[in-house]
C-alpha cells in the first residue's frame, strides 16, 4: 500500500479519532500529521496492508498519550452494573440537542471515551480494541458499557425535558 493511498484511505477517520481524543482541532491535525510521518518512516515494516488501519490508530493513540495523556480513573466492574434500571426507548426520535450530547461525550473520562471512539470510528471489535489499548477484552466491554450508558442518559434527559416543555 503506497503512502498516498494510506493518507487518502485513513486521514479522515484518524482526524476524527484524534479530535475526539484531545477535543482540539489544531492538536488533532498535529496528531494526524505526526502519525503519518511516523507511518511513512516505518512503512517498510508494514507487511500486511490489512493491518494498516489498526497500525495507524495505534500510532496516533501513542502520540496522543505521549503529548496529552492524563491520569486514569477507577472503573466499575461489568458485574456491578444495573441492567434493570436501563430504559429501552429509542433515543433521539424527536430530535436531540447535539450540543448537550457532544458535551456528555466530551465529559467522558478518556478511559471510557477511547474504546467508544475505536468502536465507532475504527469499527473494531472488543478483542481488537483490547489489543490496541493493551487491556483485557472484559475491561473494554465495561468501558464501552459505561460510555454508552452515560450517552444514553444524556439523550433521554434531553427527550424528557422536551416532553415536559
Amino acid at each position: 500500500m503506497t503512502f498516498s493511498a494510506l493518507v487518502n484511505a485513513y486521514a479522515a477517520d484518524l482526524y476524527r479519532y484524534g479530535f475526539w481524543l484531545c477535543r482540539n482541532q489544531a492538536q488533532a491535525e498535529d496528531l494526524v500529521q505526526e502519525t503519518f510521518m511516523r507511518a511513512w518512516k516505518g512503512l517498510d515494516g508494514l507487511k500486511d496492508s490489512k493491518a494498516a488501519k489498526a497500525w495507524l490508530f495505534t500510532i496516533l493513540r501513542r502520540e496522543h498519550a505521549r503529548h496529552y495523556s492524563r491520569p486514569s480513573l477507577d472503573l466499575v466492574s461489568m458485574e456491578d452494573m444495573d441492567f434493570e434500571s436501563q430504559h429501552f426507548a429509542a433515543p433521539g426520535s424527536d430530535g436531540v440537542a447535539e450540543m448537550e450530547f457532544a458535551q456528555t461525550l466530551d465529559a467522558l473520562p478518556l478511559e471510557y471515551r477511547e474504546p467508544l471512539l475505536l468502536q465507532a470510528l475504527g469499527g473494531y471489535s472488543c478483542e481488537e480494541i483490547a489489543g490496541i489499548m493493551q487491556i483485557k477484552s472484559g475491561a473494554v466491554m465495561t468501558r464501552l458499557f459505561r460510555a454508552r450508558q452515560k450517552l444514553r442518559a444524556s439523550l433521554e434527559n434531553e427527550v424528557g425535558e422536551r416532553k415536559i416543555k
Binding site: R16, W20, A90, P91, G92, S93, V96, E98, F101, A102, L105, L116, L117, A120, L121, R148, L151, R152, L155
Partner: peptide
C-alpha cells in the same frame, strides 16, 4: 439507535 446517534455526532 444510540449507535446511530453516536456515529452522527462523531462524524
Amino acid at each position: 439507535a444510540l449507535s446511530t446517534h453516536i456515529d452522527k455526532l462523531l462524524n
